[in-house]
Amino acid sequence: MRRSLLPGMAALRTACPTVGGQAVMEGVMMRNGDAYALAVRLPDGGIRAQRLPWFSLTRHPWLKKPFLRGFPVLLETLVNGIQALNRSVEATANAQEEKLEGWHLALTLGLALLMAVGLFVVAPHLLSLIMLWLHLGGDVEGLSFHLWDGFFKCCIFMGYIWLISLVPDIRRVFQYHGAEHKAIHAFEAGGEVSAAQAARMSRLHPRCGTTFLLFVICISIILHAVLVPLLLMVHTPQGIVAKHGLTIAFKLLLMAPISALAYELIRYAARLADGFWASVLRAPGLALQRLTTYEPDRDQLDVAVVALREALGPEAGENIRTAPYTVG
């Protein structure tokens, strides 16, 4: 009998806690509600875990509403992800460096957002301008410009993932990414959760952040192609620099609604019962995860299961079997 590609999908629609995670340096971060756990493989071979409060921007009820929660969730995920990554580097390097807090954290987050804007908004736009000057595409008022823009976004995104996967340390992070998915699948499937059980699961998961980024790119292509020409019909500045400056600024303003739409779409795709439309919505993200996840080894799966156990806290049952680890 062929093993299902996504075991545990039915369990996503049950009352079990929705656990998500992220790979870090030599470890895994798992979130459950208002807390997250970080489990790291130490240089001496042991596993250390700690449970920490989740920094949230969506505590007010109106920020939890559909189509409003997406952008705040993205920002808080970046903040908590950077903090978890920083802690994992400190643990694995056995360093006593200052933690990223206060303005250090704000600066790091700002630089990360600036790099993302440069790579995925400004660079594709400028490359599409080059196609215009080469007479291979139209201006921003036409569809061809935005098709080129979307093409370059996808190429930059895929190329970036491929290039960083060549770095040995990043490749190990991608293995921990696979371990995180496998542990979550084992939990959602019910029954015993252990490294051995997780090893049988798929390393691909429909709620992955990689899928979210792909949805952001796809939605941005559609909205830019529709809304930018409408904006320029209302107001077109004099001069090419002003026109394209306004277009880039408008694209930046659209980041919030685009991320909100992408967030709702990925949640909808994860909740869908298995079938044609579910497969269509999940397929691109799952295919992309073949680049951002690698098959983990037993030691990496042990770390992921420890992170899951600590994230669940009092909700964890006796069915979650971990390797020995220390807390603190």
Score class of each variant (00 low, 15 high):
Ala11Cys: 04
Ala11Ile: 00
Ala11His: 12
Ala11Gln: 14
Leu12Met: 14
Leu12Thr: 02
Leu12Pro: 01
Leu12Arg: 13
Arg13Ile: 02
Arg13Met: 05
Arg13Thr: 11
Arg13Val: 02
Arg13Pro: 02
Thr14Lys: 04
Thr14Pro: 00
Thr14Tyr: 00
Ala15Ile: 06
Ala15Met: 13
Ala15Phe: 13
Cys16Arg: 13
Cys16Glu: 12
Pro17Arg: 07
Pro17Lys: 02
Pro17Ile: 03
Pro17His: 05
Pro17Glu: 09
Thr18Arg: 14
Thr18Asn: 08
Thr18Gln: 13
Thr18Tyr: 07
Thr18Gly: 03
Val19Gln: 01
Val19His: 01
Val19Glu: 02
Gly20Phe: 04
Gly20Ser: 10
Gly20Gln: 08
Gly20Cys: 01
Gly20Asp: 05
Gly20Ala: 07
Gly21His: 12
Gly21Phe: 12
Gln22His: 04
Gln22Val: 08
Gln22Arg: 10
Gln22Trp: 09
Ala23Tyr: 09
Ala23Val: 07
Ala23Cys: 11
Ala23Gly: 11
Ala23Gln: 11
Ala23Asn: 10
Ala23Lys: 09
Ala23Phe: 08
Val24Trp: 10
Val24Asp: 08
Val24Met: 13
Met25Ile: 15
Met25Asn: 12
Met25His: 15
Met25Arg: 14
Met25Ala: 15
Met25Leu: 15
Glu26Thr: 05
Glu26Leu: 06
Glu26Trp: 06
Glu26Asp: 14
Glu26Ser: 10
Gly27Ala: 07
Gly27Pro: 07
Gly27Thr: 06
Gly27Arg: 05
Gly27Ser: 07
Gly27Cys: 06
Gly27Met: 08
Gly27Tyr: 02
Gly27Leu: 07
Gly27Val: 04
Val28Asp: 02
Val28Phe: 04
Val28Trp: 03
Val28Leu: 06
Met29Pro: 12
Met29Arg: 13
Met29Ala: 15
Met29Glu: 10
Met30Lys: 12
Met30Val: 12
Arg31Glu: 03
Asn32Trp: 01
Asn32Thr: 06
Asn32Arg: 08
Gly33Tyr: 01
Gly33Phe: 03
Gly33Pro: 04
Asp34Thr: 02
Asp34Pro: 00
Asp34Gln: 09
Asp34Arg: 10
Asp34Glu: 11
Ala35Pro: 00
Ala35Ser: 11
Ala35Met: 06
Ala35His: 15
Ala35Gly: 00
Tyr36Gly: 00
Tyr36Thr: 01
Tyr36Lys: 02
Tyr36Ile: 00
Tyr36Asn: 01
Ala37Trp: 05
Ala37Lys: 04
Ala37Pro: 08
Ala37Phe: 06
Leu38Thr: 03
Leu38Gly: 03
Leu38Lys: 01
Leu38Cys: 06
Ala39Tyr: 09
Val40Cys: 08
Val40His: 03
Val40Met: 05
Val40Lys: 05
Arg41Val: 04
Arg41Ser: 14
Leu42Ser: 02
Leu42Tyr: 00
Leu42Val: 00
Leu42Gln: 14
Pro43Trp: 10
Pro43Met: 11
Pro43Gln: 10
